[in-house]
Design a protein around this nucleic acid. Structure first.
Lengths: 342, 342
DNA sequence: CTGAAAGCGCTAACAT
DNA sequence: ATGTTAGCGCTTTCAG
């Protein structure tokens, strides 16, 4: 109802019969100087009644801060990133920060993306989620002097990062398959280099070793982070191996979906002939056919921890944020069955 | 490479041996006062060399503008909205604006969402995409004095809106089905009130009339905008009608996906026994099984036109933006076949 | 054609 | 315990 006329600190101060500086002190809980309890209450009351909101521009100009964080996301259409964004947004808002979502499609071709966020948008810090190779990420990061934290990525020499335990996640997914009786299990890797790719590969291998299987190298295939990659990878698995796998672990939801598409195209029944378990979950996992059995990841938490940590660093309340979160467990749906030939 | 030291207008002015006011005039193409061609070139050259970017805070404080637009989105996980966002972001960036994406889940429970965007984030204008009922939307809009444009929504008394031609889209989808020979066609409506719901319903009816069919009311079912809604709607269609439809038009991708799930659960083969055509397309349309035949919508364009128009209004270069865009055509995939009983 | 100066809203060092 | 003041970076009268 109340027409939100721009109400400034000066308005509040006048109405409360104090100087702006006093009002500022009170409203910022400045402890360095005491102010009479009565005055304080009066100011707070007036500010509330007038629905005062500090102008982030004035405040930002003064403090050289914008109270906004940038989050760089590689795929807007991928629902998995929506969870990271939601987590980051919630945490940012809790601290009075806002979140600028930036769709950074290709760091290799556009290495100035972060620099733009710094120079043009003046965000105070960066939450970086990316699928790019290390060298491109490093190059883009080198162009900015902004504090940042990596989400779902760990690279040498960069300490601020929030990741999930990829090995544990892959182990969970693969174990689900071995538990069902599978022994010839394919692996759709995102990439076979770097922390993320390697961790998941190790989890996959360990789960196989635990049941006495030494994985055939031809079962491991690079599929990238798209449905097309998953589809190609699945075809490769179907065509190349003498001993066709009876089950597949997919590194991401999208590659699992792509694999499903390849399987449908070939008329391979899932899970009757080939089972699939995916690392990563999102609501659409329930919309594929069959509905995907997945490992649920703490994506929301990663986003919120990254934002929390970044804000702590900005406010000198923290020095680093380096976390590895455990997967949230297995979501049993319909893409896993016992192998035919057991 | 270049460490982006914060370079201010004063720095540029000093380096170019002019006053900040002159530099400001040149860099803003201020035509009200002429400045020597030589000085102008010198300033521009220096600004480029120093990689000068105006500080949006200083500029914003002075002009009471933030040069940022807010876009309110009801579902972050729904890939369809990603296209609107991308369009809006592109257009905003082209004009030097940035886009603040705000996930507004529930306007009914949180009618202050837009007001917050105005007061706390100080965006200059709002692009509003929502699935809420008119009255909640109106209530939330009434709380803010920001200029706004509705995307994918047209309601009485509000002129700024960018929509697609829902009737044409529904017609396209339904016609695809009648062309295949279907006559008993169900319709999963989002809602049966308001511009959007009604337009699509009309398109559906018209397509049926064109082949001499008067639609049975029991074929039309309200499914909302979620997969769950689509699933429920499909069950309803399957169970309630004496004359079960041989095909279904879904108002949205998500409701189509939900319908698919219901059909799979009942063991109904798609498209052999029941065909589906969906209004709305996104990349995941190719990941469902069967891959969905859809009507492609100008979602990206709607986002960019909305942003363009809003910025024009903010800069007094325009008064209103009111557009209805034609659907982008039918994407033929695998969810439509000829009916069994023809 | 260019410079000087005020002021947007806010905070913090410095008075009182 | 509270007020005064300067200044963050920018644009825009107003002078010259």
């Amino acid at each position: 109802m109340a027409k939100p006329r721009a109400c400034t600190l000066a308005d509040v101060a006048t109405a409360a019969n104090v100087d702006v500086s006093t009002a500022s002190r009170v409203l910022n809980n400045d402890t360095s100087q005491r102010v009479a309890a009565l005055t304080r209450e009066r100011i707070v009351a007036v500010a509330n009644k007038m629905n005062y909101r500090p102008n982030p521009l004035g405040r930002g100009l003064r403090n050289s801060r914008t109270y906004s964080l940038g989050i760089s996301i590689p795929q807007l259409e991928n629902p998995v990133f929506a969870q990271i964004i939601e987590g980051a947004e919630m945490a940012a808002r809790k601290h009075g920060y806002s979140l600028l979502i930036s769709h950074v499609k290709n760091l290799a071709e556009d290495p100035g993306a972060f620099e733009r966020l710094e120079l043009m948008n003046r965000v105070d810090g960066l939450i970086v989620s990316t699928l790019e190779e290390d060298k491109f990420l490093r190059a883009a990061l080198a162009r900015t002097s902004l504090p940042f934290v990596l989400v779902n990525r760990r690279i040498r020499g960069i300490v601020n990062s929030v990741v999930f335990d990829g090995k544990a996640a892959a182990l969970l997914a693969t174990e689900r398959l071995t538990r069902a009786g599978h022994r010839r299990i394919g692996f759709l890797a995102g990439r076979l280099t770097g922390f993320n790719g390697l961790a998941r590969l190790r989890g996959y291998r360990e789960a196989l070793r635990m049941v006495g299987v030494s994985p055939d190298p031809s079962w491991v295939v690079t599929a990238g982070y798209t449905a097309e990659g998953g589809e190609r990878g699945m075809y490769q698995l179907l065509d190349s191996s003498a001993q066709q796998p009876t089950a597949v672990v997919a590194s991401t939801l999208l590659s699992a979906a792509g694999a499903l598409r390849a399987l449908h195209a070939r008329g391979v029944p899932v899970p009757a002939q080939i089972s699939i378990a995916s690392i990563q979950d999102a609501a659409i996992g329930q919309l594929f056919y069959p509905q995907l059995t997945t490992v649920k990841l703490p994506l929301f938490e990663m986003g919120s921890i990254a934002a929390d940590g970044l804000i702590a660093i900005l406010n000198k309340r923290g020095k680093v944020v380096s976390r590895m979160l455990a997967p949230l467990g297995l979501i049993e749906r319909d893409s896993v069955a016992t192998p035919l030939d057991i």
